[in-house]
């Protein structure tokens, strides 16, 4: 119990004195996870929407696969990305291993299935409601996809936030492909793992508290966008 109180106290101290090592780690965590989620959203939202609307052979099998990939263990993702980026692997020549870019790639692999699977479900549900109306107006193809995505944008924002939550909180993938190198690839979660293995439980907990605060801030910002969004759209 003592460590818990100490953890919160340490968190307060770290924030209050603008600890530069802490801010470096926080900045890298945000940079890596926001970039990864942004790229995943650009890939995953249209892809999910397309699967929702399209009818083709093997569609059900594809949906089952994508849904299953949501449960991909981060360590496995880390290993797969490691094996590809390793100098012994096919993309070793890119020299990306142990860089933030490698961590971004791993997180993209990790969260894109989440975005695709959830976006597919939301857009498919919306399509059931909108299909006749849109076909009656004469909206088809890409135009229909865009309309559906815009219509369910609030749900999709939640999807993206869920993906961000998974990305910023995972440790298994980034520690393998990033290597937890001080000042280069050390992020919140790998720092927490390191402090825990050093037995610095209070400091590890403090970093955890700060991670939660970051997640809270990002979600609060998203909720703000959501609130002012509909009033201004399509005037």
């Amino acid at each position: 119990m003592e460590e818990i109180f100490e953890g919160f106290a340490t968190a307060a101290v770290l924030i209050a004195r603008f600890d530069s090592a802490l801010f470096e780690i926080v900045e890298l965590s945000l940079r890596v996870s926001l970039t990864a989620v942004l790229i995943s959203a650009v890939i995953g939202l249209p892809l999910g929407a397309a699967i929702a609307v399209a009818r083709f052979r093997g569609r059900n099998f594809l949906i089952v696969c994508v849904n299953a990939l949501m449960g991909l263990p981060p360590v496995v993702v880390g290993l797969l990305v490691y094996l590809n980026l390793s100098n012994a692997g096919p993309f070793g020549w890119l020299q990306l291993l142990y860089t933030p870019t490698a961590m971004i790639i791993a997180q993209i692999v990790l969260v894109t299935p989440i975005i695709v699977a959830l976006a597919r479900q939301f857009v498919e549900d919306a399509n059931a409601d909108y299909d006749e109306e849109l076909r009656s107006i004469g909206v088809r193809g890409a135009a229909k996809l865009i309309t559906l995505i815009v219509e369910v944008r609030h749900s999709l924002l939640t999807v993206v936030l869920a993906a961000f939550g998974r990305a910023i909180a995972e440790v298994g993938a980034v520690i393998i492909v990033g290597g937890n190198i001080n000042h280069i690839t050390r992020v919140m979660t790998t720092a927490i793992a390191l402090e825990t293995s050093k037995g610095e439980l209070a400091l590890a907990l403090a970093l955890g508290v700060i991670l939660m605060m970051i997640a809270f801030a990002v979600n609060a910002m998203a909720s703000l966008i959501k609130k002012i969004g509909p009033k201004s759209y399509g005037r």
């Binding site: 900045e27 890298l28 945000l30 940079r31 926001l34 970039t35 942004l38 142990y98 860089t99 933030p100 971004i104 290597g179 000042h183 280069i184 910002m221 966008i225 002012i228 969004g229 009033k231 201004s232 759209y233």
Partner: peptide
Amino acid sequence: MFARVFTWAICAAALSFSTTTAAADLPFIV
């Protein structure tokens, strides 16, 4: 209108984040 500007600003921030490199320009070994 504000919301749209705000959204783009966040996207732009996220992108600019990604283009700046964290690593120092010193030679390095692993």
